[in-house]
Design a protein around this nucleic acid. Structure first.
Length: 744
RNA sequence: GGGCGAUUAGCUCAAUUGGCAGAGUGUUUGGUUUACAUCCAAAAGGUUGCAGGUUCAAAUCCUGCAUCGCCCACCA
């Protein structure tokens, strides 16, 4: 048997993957009598090339290959996510390069443009996963915007609506003026920031604020009822500077006496706390900032200014008027958009919400009862419970184009004050309430050029698309808000398997394992639990395995700006997919950071080469063995086997047991260390060395041990092991990928 | 403000229920024409962050402190 002196992954990987794929080994046979093993791939953004985090899917491939070798019908189902805001954000940058923006297009056109943008990139992602050897069933690949998937998603929405778990409300939501959309609470980053606290003279009282530009939206000044300083002025009026508007002074027990002057200006439209106070005191809600982050309903000279510019201008004027008492530095937490980093504005905008409490309860219960196990348990179950027990209602609407529109329709004739943005036949942008537009434009022109609509919170809507159930009119427009991406991916176990009647759903649901990183435990895992239980009454997966983040050698998160990114594809090309895969599990304790460096990948490449060369030794030696008869059989003739043979066979057995046990416990690090150590230091360094000075009858033992080692190694290093397997002297009728796992 | 985790060899990390502190990598020395220099043999390298306590026995359990990291949170 001719083998090269060093293992060259470039000569083998592609052909081997094709052989597997062609053989159909990734596609399970549905056998009623056997229990399946199923993992759904956490759907990557279909538009994204692979980064090192995706390479951690290796863990899933290890589980999948192990269970496949155990003879279970094994399904690993791949998919791609349209990834709403993520993708739209990338696409907008792309547009910006061409000097365009999202505002240049009607929503349908924009949607189609993004769609084809994603389509171009989807295949890159797929081929990269193949390059890493992932044994995914590509015949079942699903994309999150496929019609059949959306059908289930819409259906869930309707069910929730019927159960009174969907509502539309004008609540304080996290709005990013730059991205132009609201976000859920999870999509907000909090950051400590140095700011300025301005002390302002409000006539009878002095207040302190970090946001002087919002004074025009003030509805009151609030003090603590127990604050002795303000006992006498509670009936007096405060006066907003510049516009000299009188507002009441009210009391509220949440006001902190020791902050600033102990007096808070209450701005119900632009601050969540103030909104609550305002609700309690029936205060007027005055909006002075619009969705683009520009000033409205303010004195002429500030109109249209952006927030920060307005702040400067207002402060300058306050100073001129002598109303700026003093300033002091302020360290406080601000909310930032997780996507673009701009400050989040709390806005009152009608949004769609899911009542989460009712859904959370069964999701908590299921984990408490052990129907779903979280591994590692200790840390992450606590995180899971804490979040679900305190969860607020979920804002599922986003004001972006890239996503499925919420399936609700507004009748324009019944809701004439709906605000509409559209592009008319002449390409001009038009904005206004319908009642003012309908004289000039006919319905179809509006519908065709529609960019977005904004219906008042009390607008009536219907889930029927073909006309208004009330007036029977046909001038209905579908909501332009789209679903939060996680509302879709939260139903992935249902949609991909064909809930409710699909054959896959009936056979593979609930799935076996969900492997993901802790950062999307709330975003995704908790939502899948809630929606899965809601629709089917069964948990979507029996085990949640949580892995950690990939960091560099210094323990730092990898990011492009730090320049410490390790490209998985680049590394796989340089050192082989097997080496990269090994480096992601070797020495990685459960849920601890995955430290990857080129050094480590190189070390693993050395191991792959070691496996190759040990095999080369065994196989070359085999050709020297004169005849089959000269061999000693292991079975039945133990007496002729010497001490060394017995020892290595025993070690082999122990290793198989340990590897298996650790795989069952999700201790991949232990499993891989065990087989690594056995192969290199017991088999190669000790046994093979000892064999060199011996008679030839060790050949059977050598081959036997090699064969078993290849099996144990295969889930971790599928390519090199499969390649060697094909060269074994005893002709194998099945490839290694579907050979049987060594019985312990 | 609340909570969680970490601190072990030069570096990155392990150590199942408390039981001789181990890997990878790096360093040093020697070896190797005969599977592999992507190799082999050996060595050096540790008061397990600090201070107490429990125990026959502590990296591990308890208390306090220090430093770092993360999550959650509406603080003007």
């Amino acid at each position: 048997m001719e083998m090269e002196k060093t293992y060259n992954h470039k000569n083998t990987e592609e052909a081997i993957y094709k052989m597997w794929e062609k053989g159909g080994f990734f596609t399970p046979k549905i056998e009623k009598s056997k229990k399946p093993f199923t993992i759904l791939l956490p759907l990557p953004n279909a538009n994204d090339p692979m980064h090192i985090g995706h390479a951690l899917f290796t863990i899933q491939d290890i589980l999948i290959r192990y269970h496949r070798m155990l003879g279970e019908p094994t399904l690993w189902l791949p998919g791609g996510d349209h990834a709403g805001i993520e993708t739209q954000y990338v696409f907008e940058k792309h547009l910006a390069k061409e000097g365009k923006s999202r505002f240049n297009y009607d929503s349908e056109t924009l949607y189609k443009m993004i769609s084809s943008f994603v389509e171009e990139n989807k295949d890159i992602n797929k081929s990269q996963m193949k390059q890493l050897g992932f044994s995914l069933d590509w015949t079942r690949y699903r994309y999150s915007l496929e019609p059949t998937i959306l059908e289930t998603v819409f259906d869930t929405f309707r069910e929730l609506y019927k159960d009174n778990l969907i509502y539309r409300n004008e609540k304080m939501v996290n709005f990013c003026p730059k991205c132009g959309t609201a976000f859920s609470d999870l999509e907000i980053n909090h950051q400590e920031k140095e700011d300025i606290l301005y002390y302002l003279d409000y006539g009878a009282i002095k207040i302190a604020t970090a946001r002087p530009e919002t004074i025009f939206a003030d509805a009151a000044v609030a003090v603590n009822p127990d604050d002795k300083r303000y006992k006498n002025i509670q009936n007096k009026k405060a006066v907003i500077p510049i516009i000299n508007k009188e507002i009441p002074i009210i009391t509220d027990k949440d006001i902190k006496v020791d902050f600033g002057t102990g007096a808070l200006k209450v701005t119900p439209a632009h601050d969540p706390v103030d909104y609550e106070i305002g609700q309690g005191h029936n205060l007027e809600v005055i909006k002075t900032i619009d969705r683009n982050g520009r000033m409205i309903n303010v004195p002429q000279r500030y109109l249209g200014l952006k927030i920060l510019r307005a702040r400067e201008a207002v402060v300058a004027d306050l100073e001129k008027e002598g109303k700026l008492v003093k300033t002091e530095p302020l360290k406080h937490a601000v909310s930032l958009c997780y996507k673009c980093g701009s400050p989040i504005e709390p806005f009152l905008i009608p949004q769609w919400f899911v009542k989460t409490k009712a859904l959370a309860k069964p999701a908590i219960q299921a984990v408490k009862e052990g129907k779903t196990k979280i591994v590692p348990k200790k840390r992450f179950e606590k995180m899971y419970f804490d979040w679900l027990e305190n969860v607020l209602d979920w804002n599922i609407s986003r004001q972006i184009v890239w996503g499925p529109r919420i399936p609700a329709w507004f009748c324009l004739d019944c809701n004439q004050n709906i605000e509409i943005n559209f592009i008319d036949e002449n390409g001009q942008k038009v904005f206004g309430e319908y009642k003012n537009l309908k004289e000039k434009y006919n319905f179809s022109e509006i519908e065709k050029g529609l960019q977005s609509l904004s219906a008042p919170v009390d607008a009536e809507y219907s889930l029927e698309s073909d006309g208004c159930p009330k007036c029977r009119g046909k001038n209905v427009l579908q909501e332009t808000d789209t679903f939060d991406t996680w509302f879709l991916s939260g139903q992935w176990p249902l949609t991909t398997l064909g809930y409710p009647n699909g054959r896959d759903f009936k056979y593979f649901y609930p799935t076996s394992v969900l492997d993901t990183m802790w950062d999307i435990l709330f975003f995704w895992v908790a939502r899948m639990m809630m929606l899965g239980l809601y629709r089917t009454g069964k948990v979507p997966f029996k085990t949640v395995h949580i892995h950690a983040r990939v960091v560099d050698k210094q323990g730092k998160k990898m990011s492009k700006s730090k320049g410490n990114v390790i490209g998985p594809i680049e590394m796989a090309e340089k050192y082989g997919a097997d080496a990269l895969r090994m480096s992601l599990v070797f020495g990685v304790a459960p849920a601890s950071d995955v430290v990857v460096s080129e050094d480590k990948i190189r070390a693993m490449r050395n191991f792959a080469n070691k496996v190759w060369n040990a095999s080369r030794f065994v196989l070359q030696r085999e050709t020297k063995v004169k005849s089959q008869e000269s061999r000693v059989k292991i079975e039945g003739k133990r007496s002729k086997v010497n001490e060394g043979d017995k020892w290595i066979i025993q070690e082999m057995g122990k290793t198989a047991v340990t590897v298996t046990r650790n795989l069952e416990k999700y201790r991949f690090d232990k499993a891989v260390e065990e087989i690594y150590h056995f192969f290199w230091h017991s088999f190669c360094d000790k046994y093979i060395e000892s064999v060199k000075d011996r008679r030839e009858d060790a050949q059977t033992v050598l081959e036997e041990v090699l064969e078993t080692s290849l099996k144990l190694l295969h889930p971790f290093m599928p390519f090199v092991t499969e390649e060697i397997w094909g060269k074994l002297p005893k002709k194998k009728d099945t490839p290694l990928i579907i050979s049987s796992w060594p019985s312990a």
